[in-house]
């Protein structure tokens, strides 16, 4: 099936590996360890066109760079948005960046979500934890052209309620009548009235026509693996389920070899993959 997904995006017209200075416009804390940054090119130019699901290499002067998914509105050519969890030295420095500071950006890289294949279909978006940020551009795009899609079911899983990012926005999505947004946490205290359990446990109850559905999954590998399994069991074809994979990345241009996943370079051939193509790898250890 031809899709814009398979059209290899032209590598960004920049010197490979050289970051371009961007200015931090704002930094907003999402959770204890996660923040959302809004960045604009320091030279006042437009940001390069990007598609939902692509990522940038975000650089901190003197520290290093990390692969971070685009999580803002892909149609906005004035700023880029990244939601980052402080999980190491570099991401900690990114999360700590404050307004006015310069960060480096190169990208966008990779193959994004096949938005064209979702048009006219029911859409299932399943996110685990920080898997929501890479799917947020999908939601923005679909809500902007809501009439082009069938039912939209969003299922979000998180560790605990305090680990939820975009909390106010989630509440506004949950109030919309043109999509269903379910949130499930692994465990909660008494201050949580929502669902607790597996995000996959919401699948039987989700409303979509399996044979006419496209599903985008992003989250911890085991969450995506289990979700894809259960979606397929409900009748969604393995060709219509897409996963965003994560591997160690250094160069983002398929040169450094770090992100190899079987025959694929996650940075170039992914990060979004069709479930049918990677199903065997998902069940093989240490690939």
């Amino acid at each position: 099936m031809a899709s814009e997904h398979f059209a290899r995006p032209a590598p960004p017209a920049q010197v490979p590996m050289a970051p371009v200075p961007y200015e931090v416009r704002s930094q907003t804390a999402e959770t204890d360890d996660t923040a959302t940054l809004v960045l604009a090119p320091a030279d006042g130019t437009h940001v390069p066109p990007a598609r939902p699901g692509q990522f940038n290499m975000v650089y901190v002067f003197g520290v290093g760079e990390a692969a971070i998914s685009l999580s803002g509105d892909a149609s906005d050519s004035t700023v880029i948005v990244h939601t980052v969890r402080a999980a190491g030295r570099i991401t900690e420095a990114i999360v700590r960046a404050s307004a006015g500071q310069a960060l480096g950006v190169r990208g966008p890289y990779g193959r994004g979500w096949p938005m064209d294949l979702a048009r006219g279909k029911d859409v299932v978006l399943m996110a685990g934890g920080l898997g929501l940020p890479p799917l947020r551009p999908v939601l923005y795009e679909m809500l902007r052209h809501r009439e082009q899609y069938g039912r939209i079911e969003v299922m979000l899983g998180a560790r605990t309620p305090k680990d939820l990012v975009y909390y106010p926005e989630i509440q506004s999505w949950r109030h919309r009548a043109d999509l269903r947004f379910q949130v499930t946490v692994d465990a909660a205290g008494r201050d949580w009235y929502g669902d607790v359990g597996l995000v996959t446990a919401r699948i039987p109850d989700a409303r979509f026509e399996p044979a006419n559905t496209v599903a985008f999954l992003c989250g911890p590998e085991i969450m995506m693996k289990n979700s894809a399994r259960d979606l397929e069991a409900r009748g969604v074809p393995a060709t219509a389920i897409w996963l965003s994979m994560e591997r160690n990345m250094k160069c983002a241009v398929a040169l450094c070899g770090h992100c190899q996943y079987g025959p694929d370079f996650v940075c170039r051939d992914g990060p979004v993959f069709r479930y049918r193509e990677i199903r065997d790898r998902l069940s093989c250890r240490e690939v």
């Binding site: 560790r159 692994d186 996959t200 446990a201 969450m223």
Partner: peptide, 17 residues
Amino acid sequence: AQRLENTQIQLLDIHGL
């Protein structure tokens, strides 16, 4: 089985990585 899988997921603390 679902409860068991849920327990596994909680044990792995997958979102906390």
